[in-house]
Amino acid sequence: MLDRSKLLDTARQVIGDEARALDTMAVTLGDGFVEAIETILAATGRVIVSGIGKSGHIGRKIAATLASTGTPAQFVHPSEASHGDLGMVTKADVVLAISNSGEAPELANLIAFARRFGIPLIGLSSRPDSTLMSHSDVKLLIPALGEACGEGVVPTISTTLTLAMGDALAVALMQHREFTAEHFRDFHPGGKLGAQLSRVRDLMHAGDAVPLVGLHTPMSDTLLTISQKGFGVVGVLDDDGQLAGIVTDGDLRRHMSGLLDHTAGEVMTKSPRTIGPDSLAQDAVAIMNDRKITCLFVVDPDGSRRVAGILHIHDCLRVGVV
């Protein structure tokens, strides 16, 4: 039978050990980190990240995070590098080699290649006197605090520190480059994140799909437009072609008596809530939820209230914006 209390104690011990190790690294972080940032910024090529075993797994994540936040990066497996993949590394690049011990033999050829061709080498290790660090131009040192397994053999604390160091590099570079949410969206067009960063202009309907009538349009024709366009609403334009109001189901119910004797301008709700094409789709959803409506007319951002399109909440839900 499982000892639940013991299992939870072990989990808390591991998490606590790793948290304390992160605190230690934050306090001891020094000039090597700044030098690493300067070296990466000076490179005109990519950051070539490499490591073997658990360091390799962490290295792949670091490369992916760098690449997705504005710093071109690529993971190169050190063993594959020895069999031709060194051709992926150019003099314009900078190498980030990861090894907790600093003695991984698989990195030897990559280190030698970097030295031979004058490619800047950043070493990330917990041993300042290791082979890797002795050959590195920049030394990124993580504290040597053992591992959380109690035996010192299962990479736990060391991999957590390495991952955090990579995240710190990526975010510091991102902030220096003034990497914005718009840039982030360009690199993350798919999935939940891409949906959350979608702009209204990406999802709205435009052109002939937009239901529009004039102020003096008879309600018989207005109802026909509502039916044909399928949004359950119609925008009403004034004589200058700007959005003066909208006709909704609620407006139809309020004017049910003698409805067909009216014009769109007489039935409409004036000065409806609108949104600009450059607004985030999730902001549009928030407005629709707050107002308990299903559509928003999109108007030009110059303040003229000229209609650029219409956005239905289903357009947002379909791509995952909630």
Results as ranks from 00 to 15, higher is better:
68 S>P: 02
69 T>R: 12
69 T>G: 10
69 T>Q: 10
70 G>Q: 07
71 T>S: 12
71 T>F: 09
72 P>N: 03
72 P>C: 01
72 P>Q: 01
72 P>V: 03
73 A>I: 05
73 A>D: 06
75 F>E: 00
77 H>P: 07
77 H>V: 03
78 P>Y: 05
79 S>R: 10
79 S>T: 13
81 A>C: 08
82 S>L: 11
83 H>N: 08
83 H>A: 06
83 H>E: 07
84 G>W: 05
84 G>L: 08
84 G>M: 05
87 G>W: 06
87 G>C: 05
88 M>W: 03
89 V>Q: 07
91 K>H: 09
92 A>P: 02
92 A>G: 10
96 L>S: 01
96 L>M: 09
96 L>H: 07
96 L>D: 00
97 A>Q: 00
98 I>G: 00
99 S>Q: 01
99 S>T: 08
99 S>V: 02
100 N>C: 03
101 S>Q: 01
101 S>C: 00
103 E>I: 01
105 P>T: 09
108 A>C: 02
110 L>D: 01
110 L>W: 01
110 L>N: 02
110 L>I: 05
111 I>W: 00
114 A>F: 05
115 R>P: 07
116 R>Q: 13
116 R>N: 11
117 F>L: 15
118 G>V: 03
120 P>E: 10
120 P>V: 04
120 P>W: 04
121 L>T: 07
122 I>V: 15
124 L>P: 02
124 L>V: 01
125 S>Y: 06
126 S>N: 11
127 R>K: 15
127 R>L: 11
128 P>L: 13
128 P>M: 08
130 S>E: 09
131 T>R: 14
132 L>W: 06
132 L>Y: 02
133 M>N: 09
133 M>E: 12
134 S>K: 14
134 S>R: 12
135 H>N: 13
136 S>A: 15
136 S>L: 02
136 S>E: 03
137 D>E: 14
137 D>I: 03
138 V>S: 04
138 V>D: 04
140 L>N: 13
141 L>P: 10
141 L>M: 15
142 I>K: 04
142 I>M: 14
144 A>H: 14
145 L>F: 12
145 L>K: 06
146 G>Q: 10
147 E>G: 05
148 A>W: 08
149 C>Q: 10
149 C>H: 09
150 G>A: 09
151 E>M: 15
152 G>N: 09
153 V>F: 15
153 V>A: 14
153 V>G: 07
154 V>F: 15
154 V>A: 15
156 T>A: 11
156 T>L: 03
157 I>A: 04
157 I>R: 01
160 T>H: 08
162 T>V: 11
162 T>Q: 15
162 T>P: 10
162 T>M: 14
162 T>S: 15
163 L>V: 04
163 L>Y: 13
164 A>G: 06
166 G>D: 02
167 D>N: 13
169 L>S: 09
170 A>V: 02
170 A>W: 06
170 A>T: 09
172 A>P: 11
173 L>I: 06
174 M>L: 15
174 M>I: 10
175 Q>A: 11
177 R>C: 06
177 R>L: 08
177 R>S: 07
177 R>E: 11
178 E>I: 12
